[in-house]
């Protein structure tokens, strides 16, 4: 019983997209058809005071996930570690979860013909390993851990309010947090 979460440090991210490559390789993600993790380059400010940040988009593993609320068959569910997962065997592909997700975290997997999304590499995490993207990141921009364990780095960053959620106005209580570049 854990409550896994992730902190993404946008100040450290170089935009190298190694996390995408690691995820594609680890999770059999069809690179051309959809991605479980995306890195968007965002330019802020007005000339000459402009800066670039690399915004990471993954499933936010919300505590009140609207994809799970709307799923008719229970194929979208939250496991005991707070990870939002899809049971591909009982998914009928109605795409209600894709419409309802405010983070655009899902894509249609062309072979399974069901939605697919980030699983926090649940198959690795249950063996005590880190998610593939976290292990790969050369800048250590992605930090993974148990939010219920006050000693973990993610819990500290969230408690100090250094890491904040995206789109908090939707009230789904995401478990992915971001550190804004200074």
């Amino acid at each position: 019983m854990a409550r896994y979460g992730m902190v993404i440090d946008l100040e450290k991210c170089l935009g190298c997209e190694a996390c995408i490559a690691a995820c594609v390789e680890e999770n059999n993600v069809p690179y051309e058809k959809g991605l479980r993790t995306q890195v968007h380059r965002i330019v802020t400010g007005r000339f000459p005071n402009v800066s670039t940040i690399y915004m990471h988009r993954i499933c936010q593993h919300c505590e009140h996930p609207s994809c799970v609320t709307v799923c008719p068959t229970g194929a979208s569910f939250v496991n005991k570690d707070g990870i939002v997962l899809i049971d591909y065997e009982i998914c009928i592909g109605c795409k209600y979860c894709m419409v309802a997700c405010p983070y655009l975290a899902r894509y249609i997997h062309p072979e399974r013909r069901t939605p697919d999304k980030c699983t926090f590499c649940e198959h690795r995490v249950k063996d005590g390993k880190l998610p593939a993207c976290v292990e790969t990141c050369p800048a250590n921009a992605r930090i993974f851990g148990d939010l219920d364990n006050p000693g973990s780095e993610v819990a500290k960053l969230v408690a100090e309010n250094r890491a904040i959620p995206m789109g908090a106005e939707y009230g789904t209580r995401p478990k992915v947090f971001y550190i804004r570049p200074g």
Binding site: T69, P72, T73, A75, D87
Partner: peptide, 12 residues
């Protein structure tokens, strides 16, 4: 499965 799923979500 929309009616007979083992984990049917009646709030959907």
């Amino acid at each position: 499965l929309v009616l007979l799923s083992p984990k049917l979500n009646l709030s959907s």
